[in-house]
Computed example of a mutant assay.
Amino acid sequence: MRVWRGMLLSHCAVLLTLAGCSKAPEPVVPAAAPTSDTGTSSVPPEAPATSEPPAESGLAIKRGIVTLAADRSSFRPCGEQKDLLLVDQTDGVLKREFAGEKDANGADQGLKLYVEAYGERAMDQPAPEGFAGTFLLEEALYAAPDGQTRGCGLPPQDYIVAARGNEPFWGVEVSEAELLWRQPEEPKEISIAAPQTQDSEGAVSFVAANAEHKIELLIEAQACRDDMSGEYFAYSARATLDGKKYAGCARVGNMSF
């Protein structure tokens, strides 16, 4: 699986053993424990929605609303008003993972999903009538029924990766500057500067430690579903806080816009 290309290219030498730095084709709302998207956690106040540039480059994570249909599915990028014909170059992951799900009106056709994905507009392909263009979906990174998450109502995230899990609830964000752990019980928040990164085929790990705590986070290129919300993630996560183990799902951040 081609992964991590949504990172800043300056991270390639460290993070892209999984995919390399060439053009390639899979939380969370800033990870918090618990998160409001799943109905299990609190998150910082919402930032105002912003209009996103088209970001034609395949290196940028695309965010938008996918409408699944039996014949022609569509993709509407966040901040835009017109649909693009969706050409699914995956193994049909969205239709498979959300098969049988119904929208708010009880319909299973035309299900709308908020999606974060790798893909790009097909500039050389004419679009059918009623579509403003064609979008080639190369890899679905995250998906949830539209309205279940804040989706396009939030600006692109600036973390490298965010992960979370349930029972016990936990969340972690990794940025260039720090690893931030959150959980309901004390200590509710742990911030450790300068996390160290190690990578191997199919996985990347982060380790951060200070005088009081040590946190290890392993992200693997393995599909994951939140067992409470049903959200789809392209990555699974395992974490260890001071020897206690946790499991959950992970979401790569968007640092390319």
Rank of each mutant, 00 (worst) to 15 (best):
M123P: 05
Y235V: 01
A144P: 00
L94V: 05
Y235P: 05
A132L: 06
V172E: 02
G248E: 01
L18H: 06
L136N: 15
L136I: 12
V204G: 05
A19V: 12
T35Y: 04
F206E: 00
C78T: 07
K112C: 06
D199R: 06
I61N: 00
E231K: 07
A211P: 04
S200N: 06
L59F: 10
L141M: 10
Q81K: 15
A70K: 14
F75Q: 04
Y232M: 04
A19W: 01
M228P: 03
E129G: 13
E52C: 10
G6M: 07
L18S: 11
A19R: 14
A31E: 07
K245L: 05
L180G: 00
A32R: 10
T240P: 00
R251K: 06
V43M: 09
E116Q: 13
Q81T: 14
R164K: 14
A19G: 15
D91W: 03
L180W: 01
L85A: 11
A47E: 14
Y159W: 01
A234T: 01
Y159R: 00
A209Q: 15
R251E: 06
A47S: 10
E173I: 03
R63P: 07
E173L: 08
V252Y: 02
Q157V: 07
A203R: 10
Y246S: 04
A177Y: 06
C224L: 03
E46I: 05
A250L: 08
H11G: 12
A117H: 13
A122M: 11
N166I: 07
S200D: 05
A32E: 01
Y246C: 03
R2N: 12
V252K: 00
Q89G: 06
G110C: 08
W4M: 00
N166T: 09
P187G: 09
G153L: 09
P44Q: 07
L154K: 15
T50Q: 15
